[in-house]
Nucleic acid binder design. Structure first.
Length: 649
DNA sequence: TTAGGGTTAG
């Protein structure tokens, strides 16, 4: 849309506020009128710019806020909505409700709750109303935040909005979604009048908690049924495996929409009837993105990998851009077949269509490359994934820390500073972390310096690492941990002279690094191993198992990560050192002795090294074994080639 | 005067 030129008002040079001119009312009406015709975000932004330029913002900001809050991403934008909201001098209840809803719709319910608290505690002239409560209750439901939702419920009972039909209905929905059917039913029973939505929410609560008969009773009881009620029943009977009953509802319902067809298709897929699912898919009058994704994931679920890929390609040919669900389904199908080229093709499709490689989709891509035998590509994807999600959380962390003081008047303790430093270190903000420690009002302890030191180890920062180690050693000269971490940093940077210096220093001070030791329980005994251990009665078998492991890892394309080996030795020797780490011995022992299908559980006294972590992931896949390693800081649950810590530890 | 709660894939 080309906008006609707007005459700019004359601005008085000495003041920021323009003097009133005759043009203004016209200009305001003109912009307001044009806003109503906006169909794209670009058009809204153009008018927004004009309004800023001509000082018309105060009069149109609430219309702009509503437009930017539109749930259609072609029109709405959370960031712009927030920016408009923040510049409204005195936001009305309506503005607050709009922005809170916008956050909930954009899956940012935590922020919605924060805003709700601000409205509650910092706006003496305003308070939540019958429009605010349904929004915030929905946010709590999205987060499965039962406690918070119950608190809001308590608040509602203290206001006059407890009798509002929408507020009551939203509470039924909240308790239903959180699996609290008894509470949902209590609210439902106390409603003086019930509309369709409340009946449907209540039924859905029963369905989601597996009580399909209770849902059916309500369905029979309810005064009138629309589309939603029927679809809830189809979904309910499908989910509990009663596919014929689901089909009866589908056949009996007076009007169907795409959602009811989708629910029925998914039902057939989940009970393994791909033929009937495909039949419905071919018959249906209208399909949406969920229809296609359900087909792809449904075929994949039934191990019909080729069919999954065919329907996925058909979806692309139909001009649809696949969403996360469809991509994950297609990539899993590729993994199932081991079709590396097909996987690469999907990857390049994603790149050329600007689909962000992050989150679950990123993990699926890594998983696909690993399962197709290309560890290099898997690593490439892994390294290329922007850790923005972490960046976002770092920002949130900083903000919450700040809010403790500024908004809640809580003085942070040493533990709070410790958390902030840990957060910053993990994300690589080492300078900032150092700054936080130095500026904290209380005396720093060795623990907080150690956390900076370990951040420096993960991010390979020698300079700050040395500084942190010095401070930690000053405070706790006998703690071996910081010497070890610092020598890890030196070793990774190839500064072997410093490694020897540090070793000398430790010797001088009579400090010894705890040797890595891993144990496995078997046959009522604990079997312990240290690095290179040959003392176990089954040593011979264990070492031949390690040889076999080495071969199988090589076939899987594994390249040893020798950065954390402390010894000043050639690369080949480093690999041998790695291959005999105590946890490898323990796992080899487990593979020999613990019967197939049973989990191998290892306990290690030190932190598991990067290379052993990667190897254990691969082994869990190669040998199809669940392996659980408890190191000195956390549990690592390895299964199907990945670890529960998502490589972040 | 405007706005709010319910169904399908992962």
């Amino acid at each position: 849309m080309e906008l006609p030129a707007i005459h700019q008002t004359q601005t008085h040079p000495s003041t920021l506020v323009p003097p009133p001119t005759q043009q203004e009312p016209h200009l305001q009406q003109y912009i307001s009128l044009l806003l109503r015709t906006c169909r794209t975000q670009k058009q809204i932004k153009q008018l927004h710019a004009s309004a800023v330029k001509t000082h018309q913002m105060p009069s149109i900001s609430s219309s702009l806020l509503s437009l930017y809050s539109n749930s259609n991403p072609q029109i709405g934008s959370l960031e712009y909505a927030r920016s408009v909201f923040d510049r409204i001098q005195e936001p009305t209840s309506h503005s607050w409700n709009t922005i809170i809803k916008c956050y909930v719709e954009n899956h940012r319910s935590h922020d919605a709750i924060l805003l709700f608290c601000q409205l509650l505690f910092q706006q003496p002239r305003l308070s939540p109303d019958n429009f605010t409560f349904p929004c915030i209750i929905k946010g709590c439901a999205r987060l499965q935040a039962v406690k918070e939702g119950e608190q809001v419920h308590g608040l509602i009972l203290k206001t006059r909005f407890g009798s509002d039909l929408y507020v009551q209905g939203s509470l039924v929905g909240f308790y239903s979604k959180c699996g609290q059917v008894v509470s949902a039913r209590k609210v439902f029973e106390r409603m003086p009048e019930r509309d369709l939505v409340s009946w449907n929410s209540m039924m859905d609560g029963y369905v989601k908690s597996g009580q399909v008969e209770a849902a059916r009773e309500l369905f029979e009881e309810m005064p009138q049924r629309d589309l939603f009620s029927w679809t809830v029943m189809i979904d309910g009977y499908s989910k509990c495996g009663m596919i014929e009953a689901a089909r009866q509802y589908f056949d009996r319902m007076p009007v169907r929409n795409v959602v009811s067809w989708n629910a029925m298709i998914d039902g057939y897929m989940k009970c393994g009837d791909c033929v009937l699912a495909k039949h419905l898919f071919d018959e249906m009058p209208e399909r949406n993105i969920v229809t296609w994704s359900s087909m792809v994931t449904g075929y994949e679920y039934n191990h019909r990998f080729m069919d999954a890929l065919e329907i996925f390609e058909e979806m692309l040919k139909a001009g649809l851009v696949p969403n996360g669900a469809a991509l994950v389904g297609a990539l899993s199908a590729v993994s199932g077949l081991g079709l590396l080229d097909k996987g690469r093709w999907i990857h390049s499709y994603m790149r050329s269509n600007g689909i962000k490689i992050e989150g679950v989709v990123g993990t699926s891509l890594i998983d696909m490359y690993s399962k197709c035998g290309s560890i290099e590509n898997a690593l490439e994807v892994f390294r290329a994934i922007p850790r923005r999600s972490h960046v976002g959380l770092v920002n949130e962390g900083r903000r919450y820390f700040e809010m403790m003081r500024s908004e809640y008047g809580i003085t942070p303790t040493a533990e709070h500073y410790g958390c902030l430093v840990d957060l910053l270190c993990r994300a690589g903000h080492l300078e900032e972390a150092k700054d936080v420690i130095e500026k904290m009002p209380m005396k720093s302890n060795e623990i907080i310096w150690m956390s900076l030191l370990s951040g420096c180890r993960s991010h390979g920062n020698v300079e700050i690492g040395e500084y942190a180690a010095r401070r930690a050693i000053e405070l706790a000269p006998d703690a071996t941990g910081c010497y070890v971490l610092l020598s890890n940093i030196y070793a990774a940077a190839g500064q072997w002279d410093n490694v020897s210096l540090l070793r000398g220093m430790m010797k001088e001070r009579g400090l010894r690094k705890d040797p890595g030791c891993s144990s496995v329980e078997h046959g009522g005994m604990v079997h312990s191993f240290v690095v290179g251990d040959r003392s176990h009665p089954q040593a011979e078998d264990i070492y031949s198992k390690l040889n076999e492991i080495r071969e199988r890892l090589k076939c899987a394309g594994y390249i040893p990560d020798t950065r954390q080996v402390l010894l000043y030795v050639e690369d080949k020797e480093k690999e041998v050192e790695l291959a005999h780490h105590s946890e490898r011995l323990a796992i080899a022992f487990g593979l020999i002795n613990i019967e197939p299908g049973k989990t191998i559980r290892v306990v290690k006294n030190l932190r598991v090294c990067n290379d052993c972590h990667l190897v254990t992931k691969l082994l869990s896949d190669i040998y199809d074994r669940e392996i659980i390693v408890r190191d000195n800081s956390r549990y690592h649950h390895f299964r199907n080639g990945s670890c529960s810590c998502k490589d972040y530890w």
